[in-house]
Every structure is written in C-alpha cells, then in structure tokens.
Write a protein that binds this DNA or RNA. Structure first.
Length: 564
RNA sequence: GUGCCUGUGGCUCAGCUGGAUAGAGCAACGGACUUCUAAUCCGUCGGUCGGGGGUUCGAAUCCCUCCAGGCACGCCA
C-alpha cells in the first residue's frame, strides 16, 4: 500500500515549498503566490531522479532570471531526513534532485513485504465504481469490437481495484425492445423455412442473416419438431426467442470466461420494463419538462443539456426506444444502486451516444461528470499483411471464440491492451502467435519464466530467497541493477496513473520495460556463483522483479508461466 | 456537409494537464552462448513529430487553418 515514488515527490514538494517561503521571508524573492509545484522525472539520468520547473514558473512574478531564482531556492533547501543527496540547477532553470540509493533498497523491502499486494494503493478509498463493458447484443456472437472492449474494460476494472476502489463489473443485456423483435422475426422465418422450404416465407431484409440463427432453429426442431408451425405468430416468436436468447447469453458468458472475464452483474434491460422503472423514468422526465411531443412521438430535449440534437424516447407506436431504457438504466445505476462513479465503454461506432447519454443523466438529476464514457476505436485484423475479415476455420466473420482459438487468451489480452483506447488498432494475427522475439507477450513471459528457473535452480542447491533483514542491499550498485530497481519502485505510481487516466495500455508498456531491464541485468550480472552477500542481494532483486511481473500480468489477466 | 478519433524513423507504437539532445520494439546491418533458459543481450543505421500559421522564455504537446484516413450523424441499438 506504499507508493514510495509519490511519497518522495511529496517530500520534495515540501522541501521546495519551505525553501521558497524562507526565501520570501529573508527578502530574496518578492512576496508571490506559489503556484502548484510540479515534480517530474527527467528523461536524462544526469539530471537526477526528480526535477521541478518552479523557478521558471516564478520568473514573471518574482521578476528575476529563472536560474537566479533556482539558485536561491537551492541554497535554502535542507534535505536532512529525506532521500535527497544533492540538489543542483541545470539548463534554463530546472532544479534537479539526486537521491541516495537508499530509496531503491527501501523499495525492494516494500516489495518483499507486500508481495502479491505490491502495487496496490488506496486512492479509491473504497468508492463504489461500476465498469460497464462489452454489453454485446445477445442476438449474435461476440465480435472484435467486443474483444477489445472486453480486454480494456476488464483491465480498467482490475486497475481500479488495485487502486482501492470497490469495483463492479457489469454486462447490460439488451434483451428487450426492437432488436429482440427482429431477432424473433428472424428466428421465426428460419424456422418456417427449415420446415417448409426456402420459399415458404421471405426472410426479412433487416433481419439477422447470420448462420447462428439457422443453427438455433435446427436445434429447436431437433428437440421440439414442428409444434409451433400452426401457433399464433406472436406466441411463436416469443417461444423461439425464449429458446435462443438464453443460449446466446450462455455462449457469450462462456466465451468471456475463456477470455478471463467474469462479470459481477448481468443486468437485464427487460427487468427495467418489468419493474416499472422504465416508465417511471419517462414520466419523471415528462414531469420535469424535459420532453415534448412531436409527430406523435415523445422527444427528449437533449439539446438543452449539451447534445447537438433532441432524441425520441417513445416512438409514435407507443414503444420506448433503446435510449429511453438506457436513461432508466443509468438512473438505476446512480440512484437505485448508489454508484459514485460509472464508467461505460463504448465502441467508436457508438460515440454519438455520449452527449445524449450525459444529457439523460443530468435530466434525472445526476451530476454528469460521474458518468465517464470511454470510446475505444475499432479493430482491424491483419493476416499475411492483408486485412482479415473471415475466420480461417469457419469462413465466417471472426468472432472472439475464433480469435481465442487462433492466438490464445494471453496474446489477445496483451495486444488489445498495448494501444491507448483512442488509437485505432491493427491486430496482427501472425505476430500474435509467433513464438519469437518479435512477439512482446513472450518477451514478458520469458522474463518471468527465466526468473522462476533461476530461483528453482538455486533452491535445488539449498539457496532460498533470503529474509530481507539478512541482506546487504547496498551491494546492488551496477547501472543495470539501479535501473531495474528504479523501474520496480515505480509500479505503485504506475497504478496510480493508470487508475487516473483509465488507460491500462500503460501497464503493458510498463511490464515490457521491466522485462527489458531484467534481461539486460541478466546479461550483465550473475547471481549464482557470486560472493554470498552479493548473491543474496541479487536474489532479492530477481525475486522482486518476479513479483512485479506477476502482479502486472495478474491485473492484465495474462498467465505468468514458470517454465517456457 | 456537421461532429468525434487518428496522423511521430521502412513497419507497429510511446511521449500529448508545454519543458532540458523526440523514445521503444520490429525490420536492416555488425557483434556476444565451455558459466543461472540466446524466446536473451550489446552496438550501428534511421525522424523538417501530416502541411502552414499563431500563443511564449520554451510547442510533438495548447489555439486556428488546411490535407489524409477511420467512425458517426434513424420514431436502430
């Protein structure tokens, strides 16, 4: 639960602030308002571990040259009792802080103490947050958009958990409304066609044309024959939907479980109809004056709440639109279930929904900033350097199941989390299955397996990971060791940034860095066979690296093999 | 036409709440296995950060504009 990087940043902030106050006191700097002191990590090693640009920011107010201000601040800094070893001024007026290595050794102690909890922080303070993602249309199989949304949403949820939030993963089942009607009509048409021939009935233009509809009906006929042929059509459709829908939902659930995703709540849209919440919400909007009638339909004044146009919530045929139930759904999230924050993941093809959904949330009296909608860009699959649309095996559109079969869960989840959600993603199917240095997943997993193998070998010789108190960590001095320790020390802060930006792609990059620094260390330094004290210190470093890689992969829900 | 996303070395991307010489990986080229896994490492090559303006001590990062690609603009979801 310790974020040592952040703690040090805070302590440096304090040092700087005290120093500026002192300089003002003794008249070296005129009385100015001190802006927020930002502490950054310089790219170049020569500039130390941390730096601040505060002197440059004070230039105008203090009416002095930035380097002059920097010098005065440095003169007044008293680093006693901190990790700071040296402070100097460089470039246009940066103040650079050089740290004693002790902070790195302390970081290793924290890792060895916290073990599988290392990285966890508590900026969430138990706040209730819902992440709603995938929410795929249950009328068909999961597609690539769902795959990316699934990987992203699940990792965002895991990161938030690691950051101390009380997280609920939720899947919204669109089991009501128009598309279910369409689903029923499609099933019915296939049912009749299968029993009475292709020409017995025309398949609706806007129906679901997928093979899976036909499959469902073949199975139904196998089980129940033609008993619905003379049934009343609406009853017949209902029966067929009741047959096929749960099967689809189960299939989706199983597919997602293979993908490493387990939802806490499967929320049914139909339940909003059944509980009356849907009409409650519509009537509430009416009462509050957020609606008007036009062309026999009921419109929601979204444009008065920031959207670019109004939208229909009840159609002229009396049926509510999807948007209406979505408002009711979000009202339920915030007002019935009291989530402090709600995060929705939507594919880029739904971005038009963002503004009006926020409008909907405001209209039911919820601060719209509590609803965060993440739009992720769509996926293009490549095979042999060309866009791949079809599954190798089935010849149909590539589903999540096909993807998992072809590249596996680890590669899929890693690749989908390698790019920021806002970036368009080209998924290279050939690369994802390649067992070589070109493939980043293996690179990371290999580092983990390599460490496990080292520790296994040592243990075989009776050398175990020592108790941290018995180790002289000060022996870790080479640049490879220092760089690796630094990276390990950053992990909790990395979680912090991921949780704040809701951008788990940082984690894949981070763990790649860890793996890379470890491999460099491995090639530069030996562990087994070194002088005992040095060996012990390096075992701690190696084991700490293992812990960090494992913890990151756990958050990504990617396996960390012990042998490869 | 309007709105959103994207444009960084041959390829895939980081960096984008402005900061110090623009970073990785892959590809290419040259090296390193009698010693803990070479699925690894070390080195070299490679960029007017899509173009053009502006804001300032300082811009890949902020603003404007243009260009290119993706997506969306339904009484569908």
């Amino acid at each position: 639960m310790i974020n040592i990087v952040d703690d040090i940043r805070q302590s440096i902030k304090d040092l700087v602030k005290q120093s500026i106050l002192k300089s003002i006191e003794n008249g070296n700097i005129p009385e100015v308002e001190i802006p927020e002191i930002s502490i950054e990590t310089p790219r170049e090693k020569q500039y130390g571990e941390f730096s601040t640009n505060i002197a440059m920011q004070l230039t105008r107010a203090a009416k002095k040259a930035p380097r002059q201000i920097a010098e005065m601040i440095i003169n007044e800094i008293n680093p006693e009792g901190t990790y700071v070893e040296k402070v100097d001024c460089a470039g246009p007026g940066f103040i650079n802080f050089h740290l004693k290595n002790d902070w790195l050794y302390d970081a290793l102690k924290i890792i060895q103490t916290e073990k599988e909890d290392y990285g966890k922080i508590n900026i969430g303070k138990g706040q209730k947050v819902m992440v709603e993602f995938v929410s795929a249309n249950p009328t068909g199989p999961l597609h690539m958009g769902n795959a990316r949304g699934g990987a992203l949403g699940d990792c965002i949820a895991s990161v938030l958990e690691a950051a101390g939030y009380d997280v609920t993963r939720e899947f919204y089942i669109n089991d009501a409304g128009n598309q279910i009607e369409k689903f029923g009509i499609s099933l019915e048409a296939r049912y009749i066609q299968l029993l009475k021939g292709e020409d017995a009935v025309e398949f609706p233009e806007d129906g679901y044309h997928g093979e899976d509809i036909i499959e469902h009906m073949k199975e139904y006929i196998n089980l129940y024959g033609d008993k619905l042929l003379d049934a009343e059509p609406s009853e017949r459709r209902k029966e067929l939907v009741n047959f096929a829908l749960p099967r689809n939902i189960n299939r989706i659930r199983e597919g997602l479980e293979q993908y490493g995703i387990k939802f806490d709540v499967w929320f049914s849209e139909q339940s909003l109809y059944d509980s009356g919440e849907l009409w409650e919400t519509i009537n509430y909007l009416k009462e509050k004056g957020w609606t008007y009638e036009k062309d026999n339909a009921l419109w929601f004044k979204a444009s008065e709440l920031g959207a670019d146009k109004d939208d229909v919530i009840v159609r002229s045929n009396g049926f509510p639109t999807y948007f209406a139930s979505d408002i009711a759904y979000h009202r339920n999230k915030f007002l019935k279930r009291n989530f402090d924050r709600v995060i929705d993941l939507l594919g880029a093809d739904h971005h038009g929904h963002v503004a009006r959904m926020k409008a909907g949330v405001s209209a039911v009296g919820v601060d719209p900033s509590k609803l965060e909608i993440i739009i992720f860009q769509l996926v293009r699959l490549y095979r042999n350097g060309e866009i791949a649309r079809m599954s190798k095996r089935t010849g149909k559109a590539i589903s999540l199941t096909d993807l998992l079969e072809e590249v596996g869960k680890d590669a899929a989840r890693f690749f989908f989390n390698m790019k920021a959600s806002g970036s368009h993603l080209d998924f290279d199917l050939d690369l994802a299955v390649k067992q070589s240095n070109e493939n980043p997943v293996y690179y990371v997993q290999y580092a983990h397996a390599r460490i496990c193998s080292m520790l296994r070998l040592l243990e075989g010789e009776g050398v175990k990971v020592p108790q941290i108190e018995d180790v002289n960590l000060g022996l870790l001095q080479t640049s490879e060791e220092i760089e690796l320790m630094k990276k390990l020390a950053e992990f909790p802060d990395e979680i912090r940034i991921c949780a704040q930006t809701l951008e788990p792609s940082r984690l894949t990059h981070y763990v790649l860095d860890v793996a890379s620094l470890f491999h460099s260390f491995y090639n530069a330094c030996r562990v087994k066979g070194e002088e005992e004290n040095l060996m012990k210190a390096r075992i701690i470093l190696v084991d700490s690296t293992r812990i960090v890689i494992k913890n990151v992969l756990d958050i990504l829900s990617i396996s960390a093999p012990e042998r490869m």
